[in-house]
Design a protein around this nucleic acid. Structure first.
Lengths: 153, 153
DNA sequence: GTATATTGCGCGTATATGCACCCATGTCAA
DNA sequence: TTGACATGGGTGCATATACGCGCAATATAC
């Protein structure tokens, strides 16, 4: 069918579909959270660090399934803003211990409201059932293999 | 249920789920396409420009649902590599016409093989049915409103 | 036909992302 | 002990992403 061909030609790439969706959703969440002074990415870092307690960059990066160096750079704005404190590791002198400051906790409390609203609005627009289904699929994508082919012919 | 609470606490954010999935899938595609010398993002630009024919930055950006300035910067590596040529617009002297060069076409031909393989592998791992379902949901996410709240209380 | 509004793009800034490489520290074996 | 290796982290580089600002060219109003 020609319509399928048109789809093939212009929208086939699954990766692009993911990236486009991520862009859109990120913009939506960031818009909703703008007043709180935290982007959704920063909120996620702060939130998780608060929940899991002080830990090193490597640990947090693994936890978030993020590249170590990416996280290292993402914490800089938070550190500058005084929301995260970086101290020396207790046992290993190389490591740095990340900790949410009191200001960080306060900011998190404020941002939490915006985030909850964004999250709720997303579910309202998208529907509870579909959201659940979507999350299930997204989870599988990040869980399932997807190893790159070993230089096939 | 406690397990749901744990999920709530650590993985609730839909936006994060999107971003994580996009990261993973991008890495997979980029790995698969590394030999071709094109990232999946660049491939998408080149591919679409080739298919739609020469056009301005604004047009292509709208087509790709990408910010104008983002696309403007994304084409720089392609331009440096001689895969895209930037000429003056015929009617409007402000506009710039983007065009895929012969080298670009050649590169695209090579990259197409890697991309097809990555795409096929994704579908193999994820399953045809689930892939279709996933794409349907992703499409809705980018299509459906998701307007940011007008500064609610 | 000029004043005004619109539009096409670039640039500065800031963040997000990840690879390759480097240094300092820690560990463990010979 | 010392030398090989492992590990925590930073830096340089390159790209991806988008907002605000400004400039030049076009279109529109009067």
């Amino acid at each position: 069918m020609p319509s399928d061909l048109a789809f093939e030609a212009s929208e086939a790439c699954h990766c692009l579909a993911f990236r486009r969706a991520a862009r859109r959703v990120t913009q939506f969440y960031d818009d909703c959270m703008a007043a709180s002074g935290l982007r959704v990415t920063q909120y996620s870092i702060l939130s998780r660090l608060k929940r899991l307690g002080p830990m090193t960059i490597n640990q947090l990066a693994a936890e978030m399934e993020l590249d170590r160096t990416t996280l290292g750079r993402n914490i800089l704005p938070l550190q500058r803003a005084g929301l995260i404190a970086v101290g020396k590791g207790s046992t290993d002198r190389r490591s740095k211990e990340l900790r949410v400051t009191e200001a960080g906790v306060a900011r998190l409390r404020a941002a939490n409201r915006s985030w909850t609203e964004a999250q709720a609005q997303f579910e309202a627009v998208f529907g509870r059932a579909r959201t659940t289904e979507l999350r299930s699929l997204l989870r599988e994508v990040t869980t399932n293999g997807l190893r790159s082919a070993p230089a096939a012919a």
